[in-house]
Design a protein around this nucleic acid. Structure first.
Lengths: 342, 342
DNA sequence: TTAATTAAGGCGAACGTTCGCCTTAACTCT
DNA sequence: AGAGTTAAGGCGAACGTTCGCCTTAATTAA
């Protein structure tokens, strides 16, 4: 690897000072057309490219955004990770930004250490946060140190930071509306535990829609659990054990995994999903399209969210002004499939 | 945001020259214990952290590794992405390296442009490549410019670059052994098209194992297609249309998605997977554990591979010597479930 | 004619490090 | 006592930029 060509090399060849070359490269020069051409020619001939590190040092900006996310548990997977990342990467690239990714530690102190290091060593300009917890220490740290960041998803009692989130409540309204239009009068829910922020947000939409349609609700129509396949399976069992007249004819599930568990139970009992019991999921994972029966579900446009979140963050960085409004909700959309078709 | 504390601030407080502080920080100082303590105290009190950009500029290394991957198609997903990334991130962190991620463009020229930019601007020290194509232009570019890189997976006619790959052939041997031990004599395969590098690699293991067990093989026992659910479904249909005496009693599939398609067809025909037809997949996606019946599959230790690939690459960077051997195969392991249990 | 303006580009300084060589004083050895 | 050695740390230079002010000569205005 030979020495890099620098401004000085170009300057020498174009017979100007190297600072002038810099100005030309950065488009704020005040030079005659001839000199400018000479400079660009020299740049081409020598294949000059500005050194990113030197530039960063001088302008005290890295054009780099830090991101870290909680890894999916073994045997589970994160259905939107790839799309979300690609959405962010693509938009970042358009603005000349890059992503610096680093591991996620469950231990909060260790996790915080990562953020602290990156900030202290001036390695990134800003962060994206996801899966922000209640009183998330990283979010607090960033707020305190006035490091710009945007979150994908909000915390329980919203701290006052900018975020973009999926409108889960709206999603459940869409689901309930759909079921109500199909004539379902008794609509149950398979949900996360009551302390789940995302879960409660979605459940509010469920209750709201029921009220709008003047539909009844009952405590034992709402089954809760850890969000996995087994939970959905057990929840459906509990619902089926109610007396037929008193049980829901359809359920909305807070995620697809539980919905699949519910479908499995239905089929085990010889019941026909869609006809005997409508089932709606949330996430629209790839398997929703492929399962037998295919699953009606709410799709989150992860790549658009990724792209949007970058757009907002970069605007903030470039104008030095936090976007307003700083908190936005993106509507999911309902994909209707066999699990709600009679 | 106040001005960063620098070496000079520390030096002033510790009453030494700033270069001496630098030496202490980098552990190659030659100072008395008292001065050293004074310096460390000053560092603590002022909360000094070395500026990464300045350091990079000086040493002409960024301790940053570039990575980009082909996004999963809509409606499909990448089962090992998250684990692979986290494995790399964690090991990189241990050595003080970070990851720079950027989008993947299908257009080869544009894709190459990304690599070129990162190299020319001296933004990364090395790359990880995945899904390397036959005569991959990016790999060629990196070879030509002597930029260190490691690939996850190899190309068709192996160019001579360092890689780590899953031993797909071994995986299929394990699968066939397992089926043979269960007494299966006729073992078919649901495979990718014949020009698939990964596919052929796996199929060689299939043939090898059949030979070892002196089991017969037949052209129409091998069905090929694009690797999706529909392919598996159609392939199983074709196999079931063969006369019972002339058809396989078990199949190995090149991925889980096709295996699920095959299972769906079996169930549609009222046949019992495991009993009437053994089915083995490849990838061990989360759904393999949850499906009804659950799917026997080959699991790739993605996080270990990620970690190992980083280990090798960083060794290379730190010693300036390409590791030897530069090409390694990692064995997958078979997870036995209901789809091969009578 | 003279002063003011403008176009074109030069130039010193700074961003925060690391590297290698140099200086000084004290100590050791014969 | 004098030469050689070592410990402790100073110091100039360089990494490749950008920024803001300065200089020079030509042009314009009155």
């Amino acid at each position: 690897m030979t020495r890099q060509t620098t401004l000085k090399d170009v300057a020498e060849r174009a017979k100007v000072s190297f600072q002038t070359v810099s100005k030309v490269v950065n488009k704020n020069a005040n030079v005659s057309p001839e000199t400018e051409k000479r400079i660009w020619d020299a740049i081409d001939e020598l294949n000059y490219h500005p050194n990113y590190t030197a530039r960063s040092l001088r302008v005290q900006k890295t054009r780099t955004i830090g991101y870290s996310w909680r890894p999916s548990q073994p045997g589970r997977y994160n259905p939107i990770l790839d799309n979300f990342l690609q959405g962010m990467f693509r938009n970042a690239e358009r603005h000349g930004y890059y992503f610096l990714c680093f591991p996620f530690h469950e231990d909060a102190e260790k996790r915080l250490g990562n953020y602290r290091d990156l900030i202290n060593s001036k390695r990134v300009d800003a962060f994206i946060l996801s899966t922000v917890n209640y009183q998330d220490p990283c979010a607090e740290y960033l707020l305190e140190h006035e490091i710009p960041f945007y979150a994908f998803g909000r915390s329980a009692k919203p701290q006052d930071f900018p975020f973009i989130d999926v409108d889960g409540g709206l999603g459940l309204e869409l689901a309930v509306n759909h079921l109500a239009e199909l004539g379902h009068q008794h609509i149950g829910a398979i949900a996360w535990p009551e302390d789940s922020r995302v879960g409660n947000d979605r459940m509010e939409g469920y209750f709201r829609a029921l009220r709008e349609h003047s539909l009844p609700t009952q405590n034992n129509w709402i089954q809760r659990g850890e969000g996995d396949h087994e939970t959905g399976y057990a929840a459906m069992e509990a619902l089926l054990n109610l007396r037929p007249a008193e049980r829901p004819s359809a359920v909305v599930c807070m995620n697809d995994e539980m919905a699949f568990g519910a479908l499995a139970k239905l089929q085990e009992r010889g019941l026909k999903p869609g006809k005997d019991m409508g089932v709606v999921g949330f996430d629209d994972v790839p398997a929703a399209r492929l399962s037998k029966p295919s699953l009606t579900s709410l799709s989150q446009p992860a790549d658009q969210i990724g792209s949007l979140i970058m757009e907002r963050l970069i605007t903030w960085l470039e104008t030095d002004k936090q976007p307003d409004p700083a908190q936005e909700l993106i509507p999911p959309h309902l994909v209707v499939r066999e699990s709600t078709q009679p």
